[in-house]
Amino acid sequence: MKKYIFIAAAVFTVVLSSWLTQTDPYVAMKDVAGFKTKLNQKNQTITTLSCDFVQEKSLSFMAQKVISKGIMKYKKPDMMKLEYTTPFQYIMALYKGKVIIKDNGKVSKYDSKSNKVFKYVNDLMIHAVQGNVADSKEFTIVYKENSKTYLMEMTPAEATMKEYLSKVLVTVSKTDLGVLKVEMTEKSGDYTLITFVNRVYNTALKDEEFLVH
């Protein structure tokens, strides 16, 4: 179970460094170095982030799509909270090296450094938080762009991650360099698309807001 929690955490953490949409065709990015620099500069200006998210999960096997919604909060350097509110309640928080889950009223805590998977994901999170996702060694990344957005096509390089995900697409706005959506595709072809809306940067968030009781 811990592994899945951390894979989920990793995917969400990728989100913290950039933002996007997919309307016109993507072509190879012309200035990858410039994009990385801008992304790093943008992330250095971010101290907190709050937004709503909409998650769409395709179930090809069931011929269904399911949609859930929630709230995300992030605070530098190492706090993040994902709170699903509809149609179920579920909280996953990253708090100073701990992963905290609240499900069905029960709170579980895990140390993110207690095993290899934890450490791997923790490292990924640190990269993401510091704006270094674009330099991540855990993924091979193809950079693309269209008129409105940048697209990072991230393919897992690490064996554990490969077991579950074939690709992660991160779409970044050219307007404000914020991450607009993240799409993670499983080996089966099923995908989970998370769209971030109502993004608000650098409002005061207390550490206590990331604790889960």
Partner: peptide, 24 residues
């Protein structure tokens, strides 16, 4: 998720809250 295909068959899918599939 449990879908009834017909009176004798179900399709069952179990996945994490974040969307990673456990089994179909």
């Amino acid at each position: 998720a449990v879908r009834r295909l017909n009176v004798d068959t179900l399709k069952v899918s179990f996945f994490t809250e974040v969307g990673v599939t456990f089994f179909d």
